[in-house]
Design a protein around this nucleic acid. Structure first.
Lengths: 151, 151
DNA sequence: GCTAACCTTTACGTCAACGTGAAGGTGCTG
DNA sequence: CAGCACCTTCACGTTGACGTAAAGGTTAGC
């Protein structure tokens, strides 16, 4: 065998439990995400262990962020990831051509997809903001009355 | 009797299907929310029909907003509503006393509860904002390349 | 080469948040 | 008072997102 790559090799593949800890997920969740088609491990070991690379890790962090922070369902996240994949394919097609018109079209499509994502995120943020404003207003009124009492 | 009710009867009680449509919920969901203790209809008809007033409607809208916009679970929403109820009771105690120290204490408690809600909401908003910023940055890069092509 | 720790698939369990009948009562309308 | 739409209470079904246990294979350290 090749000398076991020790220490500071940055390209090491991780097993499921390691990525789980790094992402603050459970191994079960990660397998489940694979089951429903959200990601595939970069590879498998000789003995069929799932092996993840840094891209997988980022993908998992993205999934977790979308789930926890934005509250999207796994199905919705799947669509977002498809969008992402489409952008990636676009990027390749973009690099492969030098026709300016085609390049423009590809970029426009990417921009459109991103705009779609942004619209959905902004809508959520806006409604959340409205709720916050409501609570803040009430908080302000209470603060006001406290100030009145204090002088 | 009741001579000064302005115009059409504004205080009409609604049956479940009507509020459901007004709130964009299903009757089943509303019954379920009652089942888990999130609200009780203002009254019942002679034949045991649930009857809802405007307060109930607002409560349901609040529940829906918390669920859809902020992504809270029904259990969490229950806690928020308890907070709300506690604030209400505080208000009454506040009105009932004229002891300045007690009034201050009551207001402080209210402020604390509201601050707690705000903290949770702000955390959500912040993380959502970070995500949006990330997507916007990528969008900007694409826009930039488009602009380069266009001149 | 042995062992402990980690991994695999398979499969059944669970919890929240409802959906979907079934069987029967209510309430307005003609 | 007949009829129809809406309501009631069970009660079981479903879907999403995992948890958990079983039975066995793999890897790393000694």
């Amino acid at each position: 065998m090749a000398p076991t790559l020790p220490g500071p090799d940055r390209a090491r593949l991780l097993r499921i439990q390691e990525v789980a800890e790094l992402c603050a997920l459970t191994a079960r969740s990660i397998r489940y995400y694979e089951e429903v088609g959200l990601l595939k491990p970069a590879g498998r070991s000789e003995g069929a262990y799932r092996l993840y690379d840094r891209d997988d890790l980022e993908r998992l962090l993205f999934i977790k962020a979308m789930r926890d922070d934005a509250g999207f369902s796994l199905a919705e996240i799947g669509l977002l990831l498809e969008d992402e994949a489409a952008r990636e394919r676009s990027r390749e097609r973009f690099m492969a051509t030098s026709d300016v018109a085609e390049r423009r079209a590809i970029l426009r499509a990417s921009a459109g997809r991103l705009d779609g994502q942004l619209a959905r995120l902004h809508e959520k943020a806006e409604r959340l903001g409205a709720m916050i404003a409501g609570v803040e207003e009430r908080r302000a009124r209470v603060g006001c009355r406290l100030a009145e009492l204090d002088q």
